[in-house]
């Protein structure tokens, strides 16, 4: 097993009376090279799973394996070299006082790369930004350009796994498509494995081959993208979610009224 494997993952916040269980017994496998989606409504624990894998949410139990290694509560540089994450909001994930050049060169420096100058140019080229963007600050960039910089930062250590936390939800529709296409191209180019979180079924259906549906911290169903596109849910919540994604229909409305 050299992909990502999560078994009986529990994640909680707070302790004692204030304890909130954000993820309850989540189990799923992402084979190497696959693109796997996690969908569900807000607060269903999708992002929390990613944060547990990266140890940003340190209160978890269960078993997580990444690339054949069992994870404990420490993460070393080698782990961060195999697995990186792209955050949801590109307006919050870039340091407001660091230029693109500073962001990328610091990342490359921390991972002990040499030839940093050349690598920065290559990275910017990879994500479709020209060298003219190199010395700009985040406030001089649009949302889509910022997300490209964030993707470049995640790609800098040359990881084989990329966790995508709703990478397009903060962007407007036209830019969403650009970023999704970029992610698709990068996956093909670099042979990446994606674990993608989204509440947008269309995005997940486009990007992923298998999809786990989450509700209130539990994975209620794992289905293939074909099943999803063909509207063949086996769990009532999934059915609900799929119907909601189509938008308003007279029949559905009649069902609710009746």
């Amino acid at each position: 097993m050299n992909g990502i494997s999560v078994k009986n993952l529990k994640v909680w916040f707070g302790s004692g009376k204030d304890r909130i269980d954000a993820v309850k017994d989540a189990t799923f496998d992402v084979p190497k090279g696959e693109s796997f989606g996690l969908v569900g409504e807000s607060g269903s624990g999708k992002s929390t799973i990613l944060r547990a894998i990266t140890e940003l949410a340190p209160n978890w139990s269960g078993a997580i394996h990444v690339a054949g290694k069992t994870l404990d509560h420490t993460r070393d540089n080698e782990f961060y070299k195999t697995l990186q994450m792209v955050f949801q909001d590109p307006y919050a994930s870039l340091h407001p006082r660091h230029s693109v050049d500073q962001v990328l060169s610091e990342t490359l420096y921390l991972h002990g790369f040499d030839n940093i100058e050349k690598r920065i140019v290559t990275l910017l080229d990879d994500v479709g930004l020209g060298p003219s963007f190199r010395f700009r600050y985040p406030h001089q960039l649009s949302g889509g350009q910022r997300q490209r910089v964030a993707i470049a930062r995640a790609l800098a250590p040359e990881p084989s796994f990329l966790l995508l936390d709703e990478p397009t939800s903060a962007l407007d529709v036209s830019v969403q498509a650009e970023i999704l296409n970029l992610l698709t191209d990068l996956r093909a180019e670099h042979g990446l494995t994606y674990l993608m979180v989204s509440h947008d079924l269309a995005v997940v259906g486009h990007m992923c081959s298998r999809i786990a549906v989450m509700q209130l911290g539990e994975i209620v169903e794992v289905m293939t993208a074909e099943d999803m596109r063909a509207m063949r849910p086996s769990h009532p919540y999934t059915k609900h979610l799929l119907e909601a994604s189509i938008g308003y229909s007279r029949e559905a409305a009649a069902d609710i009224v009746a």
Partner: peptide, 8 residues
């Protein structure tokens, strides 16, 4: 968080 993920 992002810079933590770079091992800083």
């Amino acid at each position: 968080s992002a810079v933590k993920l770079q091992g800083a």
